[in-house]
Simulated scan of single mutants.
Amino acid sequence: MNAQAINMNGLERSNIMSNIRKALIPLLCILFIFGTIGCTAQGTQNTGAAKSSQPDKLRIGVIPSEDSENVESKMEPLKNYLSKKLGLEVEIFVANDYTAVVEAMRSKQIDVAHLGPFSYLLATDKANAEAIVSKVTLETGLPTYKSVILARKDSGIKSISDLKGKTFAFIDPASTSGNLVPRNELLKNGIDPDKDFSTSIYAGGGDASALSVQNKKVDAGATSDTEYKTMMEKNLLPDVDIIHESAPIPTSPVAVRKDLDSGLIRKIKQAYLDMDKESPESLKALGLDKYGETKDSAYDNLREIAKILNVDLTKMK
């Protein structure tokens, strides 16, 4: 009887353990499933955090046209306006040159950059930049301007084809409207600017180039249409005419890193577009009229010019 009882007890224990195992298997499966979901959700959350491009402060890169302290002072109204408008702390990074601004954007040390037309091309190539707005002049109402070639009315020069063997004034090697674009215009019209002039000079400024023509120091010269109009209004060029003008040139842009949060990019763009109405003092401090919409494709013509002229973008403004 004792042996039989022992066998019965062992059988019962075996049955009990079997039943427990059967009951635990579904429970363990449920726990595993929920654990996997939890891990997946946590992994997704962590991945999202790693990819987040919403900065805790907005860092804007500029270059000094004068001393750094003066630039920071001029940028102060813009800094305050954007901080209030965007609800973010804003920092201004003043670099030595455009190359330093582009490098800072490439390494994600800045989020927004005020650039020149050709330095913007470098930023798109090296720093994942995208133009959102550019400068607009009230005179034209457009985010573009033109390069013009000038000659005296009594010179007999009526077109680019008349310039072979003449003397010519450019503005500066890095000038868009006063060197790069007119060089391209000359080449397109059969004039090699390095071979076909008897003499060429760099006058140093758009006004200096135009006055060189007016004062008969050179036969013809390049400047911007805005500079020409300003000088004409002051009656400084009574004997000068435009003999050629270029296609529209995009003005200097404000660019953002494309990996910034898309919602933040929209807010930054709108803040610049609203500046003339909401913070005219910011524009006045920068010497600007307003900002207008632009896009990357507006700079395609300059990309072609850079290729044709074999331009070193690291040296462009």
Rank of each mutant, 00 (worst) to 15 (best):
S200L: 09
P117C: 04
T140C: 06
Y145R: 02
A131P: 12
F170V: 04
I132S: 04
S155T: 03
N179W: 05
P143M: 07
K108G: 05
H114N: 02
R106L: 09
L88P: 01
E103I: 01
F93H: 09
S159E: 02
A151P: 04
L138K: 11
S134T: 12
F118D: 04
S175T: 08
A113S: 09
K85V: 04
T99M: 12
I201P: 04
D97H: 13
F197S: 14
K84A: 12
G141Q: 09
T176C: 12
L86H: 08
E139P: 02
Y81L: 13
G87K: 13
V148H: 11
K195T: 15
S159Y: 00
K126F: 02
A169S: 08
A129F: 13
K135Y: 08
N184S: 15
I157R: 06
D196Q: 11
T124K: 11
L163E: 10
V136L: 05
Y145P: 01
Y120T: 06
D154R: 01
K108C: 08
K153N: 06
D162C: 07
L121M: 08
N179K: 09
G141H: 05
T176S: 14
E103Q: 07
S107F: 05
P182H: 09
S161N: 05
F197E: 12
K85R: 11
S155D: 06
I160E: 05
T199V: 12
K166C: 05
A203H: 00
I191Y: 09
A123E: 03
F93R: 10
I157L: 11
G156E: 11
K146W: 06
D111W: 01
G141E: 00
G116I: 14
I191R: 11
P193C: 03
N128P: 15
A131C: 13
L138E: 10
Y81G: 07
G190T: 15
A151C: 04
S177C: 10
Y81C: 07
A95T: 06
V94H: 03
Y202L: 07
F168D: 08
R106E: 14
D125L: 04
Q109H: 09
P117A: 04
A174P: 13
N184A: 15
L142H: 09
E91N: 13
K79V: 05
K195W: 05
A123I: 08
E91L: 14
G156L: 06
F93E: 14
S198M: 03
E185A: 08
P117V: 02
S107A: 01
S155L: 02
Q109F: 11
K85A: 11
S200Y: 14
A104Q: 07
A129P: 15
G141V: 02
S134W: 05
S119A: 11
I149E: 06
K158T: 03
G116R: 11
F168R: 13
S159F: 03
G87T: 14
Y120N: 00
T199I: 13
T137K: 01
Y120V: 10
K153Q: 13
D97L: 12
S175N: 08
V102E: 00
L142C: 07
